[in-house]
Design a protein around this nucleic acid. Sequence first.
DNA 1: AATGAATGAGACTTCATTCAT
DNA 2: TATGAATGAAGTCTCATTCAT
Lengths: 208, 208, 208, 208
Amino acid sequence: MDKRKDTRIPVQKRGKDKKNRILLTAKKLFIEKNYFEVSTNEIAKQTGVSIGTLYSYFSSKDDILAELLNDYNNSFLPILKKINNQESFQAFKTDTKSWLSYLIDQLTDAEDKEFHLQIEMLSFVVPKVFDLRKRHNDQITDLIYEYFLYYANNTTVHEIRFLSIIVFDYISALVDELLYNKHSSSEKDDIKKYGINSIHTVIKTHLN
Amino acid sequence: MDKRKDTRIPVQKRGKDKKNRILLTAKKLFIEKNYFEVSTNEIAKQTGVSIGTLYSYFSSKDDILAELLNDYNNSFLPILKKINNQESFQAFKTDTKSWLSYLIDQLTDAEDKEFHLQIEMLSFVVPKVFDLRKRHNDQITDLIYEYFLYYANNTTVHEIRFLSIIVFDYISALVDELLYNKHSSSEKDDIKKYGINSIHTVIKTHLN
Amino acid sequence: MDKRKDTRIPVQKRGKDKKNRILLTAKKLFIEKNYFEVSTNEIAKQTGVSIGTLYSYFSSKDDILAELLNDYNNSFLPILKKINNQESFQAFKTDTKSWLSYLIDQLTDAEDKEFHLQIEMLSFVVPKVFDLRKRHNDQITDLIYEYFLYYANNTTVHEIRFLSIIVFDYISALVDELLYNKHSSSEKDDIKKYGINSIHTVIKTHLN
Amino acid sequence: MDKRKDTRIPVQKRGKDKKNRILLTAKKLFIEKNYFEVSTNEIAKQTGVSIGTLYSYFSSKDDILAELLNDYNNSFLPILKKINNQESFQAFKTDTKSWLSYLIDQLTDAEDKEFHLQIEMLSFVVPKVFDLRKRHNDQITDLIYEYFLYYANNTTVHEIRFLSIIVFDYISALVDELLYNKHSSSEKDDIKKYGINSIHTVIKTHLN
DNA sequence: AATGAATGAGACTTCATTCAT
DNA sequence: TATGAATGAAGTCTCATTCAT
């Protein structure tokens, strides 16, 4: 017998809308304050829905977070797909700098920049969130690894592994700097340029 | 014979001890669980002190955190001092790689690695903590900036500014990778070597 | 060709079916869990009926219980009838032991053994249920009384009253022991035999 | 590490008083309404205590029940002790009727007659309570068994087992009749007399 | 100074019942 | 008639904080 508490599975449009509205409100509030300081009652009230309704769509506050994580995951997938894409790889075979630039653009353009911060926060606290983050990062690291593998000459697989870890770290650091630190638009451009150049240098030098 | 049970420790000192013990317990618990999941009553009990006593030393749970942050700040100062030290600067004037290595060692050896994670987490949540973190990072960035300023030839102040931001980001990313990701000891050595080399390359190339 | 999907069952009948199905499900669930741990929504869902429909047939959860009690009552009636039956009385006039055996069999074979437990439980909680139980018990006691009345020689009406109360208690105790305590089939046979013999002894001795 | 939530262990008199007052109120309310229809808030309010205080003494509503059961158990123990007592056994060796009478008196005089009903009710619902009840009943049955064992002549151990089960059932039924059904005082005396006589008859006849 | 019993707002969650469609 | 989304009062429990001793 199925022990899951049966949360409403919205079939009709109205129901889906309401569920989405709850999710949206929750996300908004989680971003504004933070997961721990947002109450389910508040989410319900701000959505303009009774607490009972909220709990008919979600079995718990955790469940709301889980759905949000799921959505985040799903919104991240196309970005990964784009990057992992054969075409882009082919196109960038001979032009590492463009590949790098493209990669960084994809990561920077990822939606949910603000919710991403909540995820980062929660990854310190909620194991499930930690795993999600790790999975995402590993996927990107693997992608970089594959690209390097293709280009490597006198470099061992081991070295490439380390290099891809480090390059992923640098790329992430750069993306974070661009997304979350307050810089003017022109500063951002410069930082991005410098960042890409520097990482490119690193790759060129170590992958001779 | 009048044998006083105990040599009385001056009231102030005893008070300070108690306060410190509370802070220590709080920090331990914040690390073990996390700020949100630790209660003031728990801190008091684990310290072996009544909740009333705790509240005679601290006005609120937030206040405990504030003091801890303050301590963290103070423990960070000597590290900064060491790095900013004229001597080290002089010593490393001609050897950027050694300077870099030294810088990274200092940051890696910083105490409170574990509490640092709590701070990172809370910086997403508590503005005061965010500011602290930013202040620390800015100080290190400034330090790097100063070093670069000294070496720059055909580089504008502006460019140096960006470069120091980026290099700080890379250094931080490397330190985090070394401290918080699970690598074997030999892997760590390799990653560190690669990391230092790559950052060195970046500096050399962009500061020619 | 105009082929109506379904021969329409007269509305009344269909309604009755649905109502019965709800009652059946409710009873099943009340037995499986217990009255307090079963929700109306659950009953509706398990019946395959909307909660709205449920509330169109029953005005409240209590009402469902009331109907179930009513049904229980009605299903108990034939049993009483059988026992009270003139024929059986006649048949057993000269054979108290057989009469006793028959009585116990009837009570043991009563349907709804499991629901009976719910009723017993609820009789501690819901006055209405308490009354129902009392009414049933009184009816059986009366029946025993009548039988004894017939046989009494040097016994006052008063004494017969008390005796029938006590004998009813013993019979009930025996039936409960047989129905609800875990005994092997052969143990049950022995207990039943002993029980009947002992009650028979009581009657014989006190009614001589 | 001890995972039990630390409920207050009252050392001082005042604390013990308060805990007892909560228990007393809870018992009163459980008797008046029933366990399921009494809320912790109500218990707290009626005790004249905040809900927080209640939860500092008890970890949950279940815990309150558990303590009450424990107390019940402990109040039952002396009764058992009295019955099991060597002296009484010796004294009643030659006088089964007196032994029976004594046994029934002890059970009838058991305190907590009203709470006993709650326990009976809950034993249908809460396994823990069911077990408690069973344990009590088994102890009394064993006691009866021992007594019979002593007296048995041409009776097998097996038969004695069954007889003691049945006699226990009859005794319980009689005690319940005396305690919970509304009879006048003189009626009670008669019922008791008849009951004892009848059970005595049973024993005599079957233990010849 | 220190104690710790006491507080109560507020968090999460359930469920009998209603009502627009 | 039937549906099921929606309601919200009420229940259990937590925890930062206070205050009489």
